[in-house]
Write a protein that binds this DNA or RNA. Structure first.
Lengths: 340, 340
DNA sequence: CTGAAAGCGCTTACAG
DNA sequence: CTGAAAGCGCTTACAG
């Protein structure tokens, strides 16, 4: 395991330069090629990564910054990235920031220091500090899950998904709906999904029906709430909502929130879906196995990871990439929504 | 970002050696120390990792080999490892093997090639190839979740946990029990949990009651089954079991399996816990929020990760570590077990 | 305490 | 196509 390029050169009876050229696909005569190949195979020689990187000033490593590790979306995206990167002979390095924006910035600089070739950034929001860091390091960055005009982005089609969920539940006859969203600082989850949904409602309303009163007169009562990303937060929020409003359906901005809502409903003796229908966003595995199974939007996280990996590699290799890549999704109708 | 040690030396009016010594805590006079410190701060100098590693022939990186990323146990263990490593100024590198044993072996060699300082191995089973690889690389390895006499190990107390679950469900009056386990090739999950449970049953039996017939005469009917780790597999297995055996309780070797069982029960119109009680192992977040909440054994995965990190760092630094570290657990009684 | 020098294992112009 | 040489940015005996 400890052979150096000098050993190989000596054993093959050529110079180090030639071996290096052979390794990196430079021009080498067929004859020497064979000689070196034999020695490399026999010795199991592998070049020292550090020496390579020190000279070449770059690595075959893609750094991925993630806000958390214990999330279905993150882990599946990571698996997709890892798989694709591996097939392209790149390595994935993960930096977990535990939802700490300061650590996100640090991670970006730290990756730069380590001469990482490219960075995939899974972030809930992009601040000026992010922008500054990305500018500073002059390394390709791909944003996943959010969109920003100054950064190559890969997103899920949150707006359309929100619209589809809205159109679907309306088509099932629901008119009294609580939309349980998250902070608008997360544009994808907090704004896009909600606005998509809101637009679906608008499109369903009779013409000229805009104000809350007009909506109510038309039989619609749609209210918007905000909670955190954690199931426990959602449970508490849902409990409070249900004390003051009796919707026939709750649209939740994530599957986790939906799970919290379902739990809160059970605690109050509310049966799903006959008393209360529920929908989510995400398509986590667990949503299929609970009872009743959750109607939700399924995002192709693993596939998104693969595409993200392809894009960042293209960026690293100075090939063109669309400013924004939009992934598809599917609406999965299961048991948690009743007809009204 | 591009200063080298030579620049710093020049700016501080000392030699490169002295700067290096300062950086690595060697003996430097207070005066020079101050001079160098000032320059380092002013320039924001950070040493080039590759050059360091190339010379020093070691890194501050700990490699972690994981069979999968999308598991509660894995992700929480990783978070604990990462957190602790970070605080000790080590970095964590993750290699996901997608449950492919061959890739586990490759990952070990690859880490060695990259001069990683130590390896934390989360593996379901240890083969001869693992042993050979670990021998070959001569880098400290810590095994997490499984125990092996030739490798420093950190385990959860699966046997005692199995015993406790057994004693608990017996104390609740259950006598007709299906134990739904996994392959015995996974010693921790497949053997230890089951044998702990089996011993609890033995200890509860009247003296001199050994054979199946004697057990049945004493009112006990305990049957053992095996399934896969996936919810979907467990669902199918449970469905088949319930067609031929009507236990009052099913003890599942993992929370995932329990989730599959619960789903199968619902599909058959079996109510939990009144018709059928269920228990799991793991303590995944989701088990608390489903209805009814799952009675299970909770393992401190995050804490285990932290301890694992401490241990591997001690190993790397040639300090002593116990051959086996055993983590504690807690039995969480919730709603999925009825009294009989 | 401090510095000059060698060397870690590669790659890359530059000649030939 | 091939080789000698310089150099990437550090660290580490070795002198002083």
């Amino acid at each position: 395991m400890n052979k150096t390029i000098a050993d190989i050169a000596q054993m093959a009876g050529v110079s180090k330069s030639t071996v290096s050229r052979f390794l990196n696909g430079g021009s080498v005569s067929l004859d020497t090629k064979r000689k070196i190949e034999k020695v490399v195979k026999a010795t199991g020689y592998v070049p020292n990564t550090f020496a390579q990187s020190l000279k070449a000033k770059r690595t075959n490593i893609i750094g991925t910054v993630v806000p958390r590790l214990d999330s279905f979306a993150t882990s599946h995206t990571l698996m997709g990235i890892d798989e694709e990167l591996r097939s392209q002979h790149y390595q994935m390095l993960i930096s977990n920031t535990s939802q700490d924006v300061k650590r996100e910035i640090e991670a970006i600089y730290e990756f730069a220091r380590q001469k990482i070739s490219g960075i995939i950034l899974l972030a809930a929001q992009i601040t000026d500090d992010h922008l500054t860091a990305i500018q500073d390091i002059s390394i390709p960055v791909l944003l996943v899950g959010q969109q920003h005009e100054q950064i190559h982005s890969l997103i899920h089609d949150d707006y359309r998904a929100g619209y589809d969920i809205g159109a679907y539940v309306l088509s099932q006859g629901h008119r009294e709906i609580a939309y349980v969203g998250v902070t608008e600082r997360d544009v994808a989850v907090g704004v896009q999904r909600k606005e998509g949904f809101r637009q679906a409602v608008r499109d369903a309303l009779p013409a000229g029906c805009y104000t809350d009163e007009e909506m109510r007169a038309a039989g619609y009562d749609i209210r918007y709430y905000e909670t955190g990303f954690k199931m426990s937060d959602a449970r508490i929020a849902a409990s409070a909502i249900l004390d003051q409003f009796k919707p026939s359906l709750m649209v939740c901005a994530t599957d986790n929130i939906a799970l919290g809502v379902i739990n809160a409903a059970y605690s109050k003796g509310i049966t799903i879906p006959s008393d209360l229908s529920v929908t989510g966003f995400g398509g986590y595995d667990i949503t299929e196995v609970i009872h009743p199974a959750l109607t939700t939007v399924q995002y192709p996280y693993m596939e998104a990871g693969r595409v993200a990996a392809q894009n960042i590699v293209r960026l690293v290799e100075h090939k063109t990439v669309e400013p924004v890549t939009v992934m598809d999704y599917s609406l999965i109708e299961r048991e948690s929504v009743d007809k009204r």
